[in-house]
Design a protein around this nucleic acid. Structure first.
Length: 247
DNA sequence: AGAGGGATCTTCT
DNA sequence: GAAGATCCCTCTC
């Protein structure tokens, strides 16, 4: 690796420590308990303390940059523009619902900042960040490409290299962004976002509450109790969000 | 823009 | 044996 690149890498790592305070704080608060009633009128739900932490993380991650560094030293970067909160053992849309703790869901019960990456529909990956609370995690649903766009193009167009993907479509979906960033269950499940040398958060811009849109989550079974809860968060008017209007 | 179907296979019942 | 936190292509409006 060239010296210049190395310095940049270390600078980014130092920035990581500022964003990892989310996760450190959560670990410190592990002993806290209690319910939070109507913590946010807009959300129209009553959350436990840990569910609130998960929602706060979902909102706080908006605007943060994800840096992905490959073994050859190359980097790609994307800004988080859409997330969903999965609120653990009481959330019947969550994989850890009813304390379902299996090999697959184990990462959701690990310390805040742990990545939960799983395979869906046999051919795609989804990436979550574990939050405080039993089985709570945040699904990363969309990124705005920031740098390394050619490399993302390459990763996203492998099946059809002759047809370059539009920039808007590189990372506007949970599995698209995993493809663009080269993230799979095999390589990243249970990895620690706050200490990994291959993926970390780098200081982005905080998003003002007035700029955060809220809706129900995407593509959940209609017969579940939590299906309509307002647990999806996105940057308003950002063209890289995956779904424009939710029914 | 939105609807519908096929691809594809791990996880859990 | 069926479901599933998806994507992409095609068809229609």
């Amino acid at each position: 690796m060239a010296p210049r690149k190395k310095r940049q890498h270390q600078a980014d790592l130092e920035e990581t420590s500022s964003t990892s305070k989310y996760f450190t704080k959560m670990v410190d608060d592990k002993s806290s308990t209690g319910n939070v009633s109507q913590f946010d009128p807009d959300l129209r739900l009553t959350a436990t303390f840990y569910q609130k932490e998960c929602i706060d993380l979902s909102r706080g991650l908006l605007g943060q940059n994800i840096i992905r560094t490959f073994d050859d030293g190359s980097q790609v970067c994307g800004k988080i523009v859409e997330t969903e909160a999965y609120c653990g053992i009481e959330d019947d849309c969550c994989h850890s619902y009813n304390s379902r703790r299996t090999e697959r869901t184990e990462a959701m019960f690990m310390s805040p900042g742990t990545l939960y990456v799983y395979t869906i529909y046999g051919m795609y990956s989804c990436m979550n960040i574990s939050s405080s609370g039993d089985g709570c995690a945040v699904l990363i649903r969309a990124l705005e490409p920031v740098s390394g766009l050619e490399q993302m193009q390459c990763a996203r167009s492998q099946k059809n290299p002759s047809k370059p993907m539009k920039e808007k479509n590189l990372c506007n979906g949970p599995s698209k962004l995993c493809q663009a960033l080269g993230i799979s269950k095999e390589t990243f499940n249970k990895q620690d976002l706050t200490s990994s040398q291959h993926i970390w958060l780098s200081g982005g811009e905080a998003v003002a509450p007035s700029e955060i849109g809220v809706s129900k989550r995407i593509n959940l079974s209609a017969d579940k109790g939590w299906v309509d809860k307002p647990l999806r968060f996105f940057i308003k008017n950002n063209p890289f969000v995956s779904v424009k209007s939710v029914k």
